[in-house]
Amino acid sequence: MMVIEETQVADELLPVEALTAQLRMGSGFDEADLQEPVLRAFLRAALAAIEARTGKALLIRSFLWTLHGWRDPEGAVLPLAPVQSVTELALIDRNGAAQVIAPERYRLEVDSIAPRLRPQGATLPSIPEGGAAELRFSAGFAASFDALPPDLAQAVLLLAAHYYEYRDETALSQGCMPFGVTSLIARYRPLRMGFTS
C-alpha cells in the first residue's frame, strides 16, 4: 500500500501572518522576506506532523492510493479522512495496462474516521494477479486555513511556533510534540481497540 500526495498545499494557503503574530515577530524589517520561506517550511512540517498523528488531511488536496489487494472486498477503508470525493478507480494489470472502473460500480461511504470505498454490488472489482488498484481521491477538512476547525488551526500554529523556537536544539532529535498540541488534536486521533496480554 502506498499513498502519494498528488497536489501540495499552495504557499498562499499557509498562514504565515498568523504564525508571525503567534511568534510576536516585528514587521517592516528588511529580514521579513528572509523569514517567510523559513516560516512556510515550519508550517508545512507542522501540517505534516499533525496529519501523521491524526490520520486526517487538514487542507483539501488530491491523493493517489495504490494497493495490491483488498483487505475486505466488501469495503476498503481509505487511508485518510475526511474524504471529500473519489475521482477515479483504476485496475492495473501486471504489464501496467490500466482499466478505469465505471463510477457506477462503487461509492464513497463518508465517515470522519474511517471512510470506505464500497461496491454497488456484492464486492469491489477484483485486482488482477500481480497487479494493483489505484484510487484517486480528494481529502481534507477545508480548502483554506481559516476554514479549519479552530482547534486544529491552533495546533498547527503552536507546533510551527515550537519548531521555529527550537530550530537549533539538537537534543530534540527523537521528536516531540508539546502538550498543548497533543491536547488539541487528541479527539482527532484514531482509536486503538484491542487487548494487551
Rank of each mutant, 00 (worst) to 15 (best):
T123Y: 03
A132N: 04
A133H: 00
A132T: 08
G140S: 07
A132R: 03
E134G: 02
G140R: 01
R136F: 07
F137G: 05
S138D: 09
D146W: 02
P150S: 15
G140D: 06
P150C: 10
A133W: 00
S138T: 11
D151H: 14
F141M: 09
S138V: 06
L135Q: 09
D146N: 14
S126K: 00
D146T: 13
I127A: 04
L124F: 08
F137N: 01
D146C: 04
F137I: 05
G131D: 12
A122E: 12
L124N: 00
F141T: 03
A139S: 11
A143S: 15
R136W: 14
A147C: 09
S126G: 00
F145K: 01
D146R: 10
G130D: 14
T123G: 00
A133Q: 00
G130Q: 15
A122K: 06
G130N: 11
S138Y: 00
E134H: 13
G140W: 02
S144G: 12
P128W: 08
P128C: 08
D146M: 03
L124G: 00
L148I: 11
R136Q: 08
I127N: 07
S126Q: 01
P128G: 05
P125K: 05
I127S: 02
G130P: 14
L135V: 10
A142D: 13
P149L: 13
T123D: 03
P150L: 15
P150G: 12
A122D: 12
A132S: 13
S138R: 15
I127W: 10
P150T: 14
P125D: 01
R136A: 06
P125E: 01
L148P: 06
G131F: 05
F145E: 00
P149W: 07
D146Q: 14
S126M: 01
A143R: 13
P150H: 12
A142N: 10
F141R: 02
G140Y: 03
F141H: 13
A142K: 03
P150D: 14
A133K: 01
G131K: 06
A147P: 10
E129N: 12
T123N: 07
T123A: 04
S138E: 13
G131A: 14
